[in-house]
Amino acid sequence: MTHYGMAIDMQRCVGCNACTIACKSTNNVPEGVFWTRVHTDGGDVPDVPRETAGGLYMNYITIGCQHCENPACVKVCPVGATYRDEATGIVRQDYDKCIGCRMCMAACPYTGVRSFNWEEPKYAMDFATGDIDVPKHEKHVVEKCTFCYQRIAKGEVPACMELCPARARHWGDLDDPESDVSKALAGREYAQLLPEMGTKPSVYYLV
């Protein structure tokens, strides 16, 4: 029984979007859809700071599905298309089952991590990029970060984790103290997004 999780080092992340693009490329994510995004904690548009008493402030935070231990989305899906895989702790989405009711999107507190394919998925190229075993994207269903479960199953690394230029991303089995993510968490202060929601996310942010 593993519990996969992520740790993102906010001291290191500079919003270069390598993770965003690695995910996009590996999972052949359609145009207009992003499974993980770089958010700027600063001004009103990406990459600008805001003025504070202590000077200009800008930080970056990457947010995708938090793969919660107590997921709000799983509770409400009427057909069980979204479910938590007990063996890995990953919250998965079955495109073929999804009826497109978008209840999960209303239930998830993490604004924007779930994406609905409002039209037939479009791609810039006429062939699929990335891994061949990525489930095909479907119109009118919900999708989100899959924690690259199909790569993990083969013993490979999730796309966004392969190489963060800043080495700010860590992942692994949260229950294994020797895993990269556990080691990253040890001895560092960390925070989580919206902990008061009680969803127990598996993503940690090292502050």
Binding site: K97, C101, V141
Partner: peptide, 22 residues
């Protein structure tokens, strides 16, 4: 409002009885 109305039958085949929508 459903994205996949043809899959409405799933509501009865795969019902998640814990869901308020269900």
């Amino acid at each position: 409002d459903l994205g996949q109305p043809l899959r409405v039958w799933e509501l009865f085949a795969y019902s998640n009885l814990g869901s308020p929508l269900m």
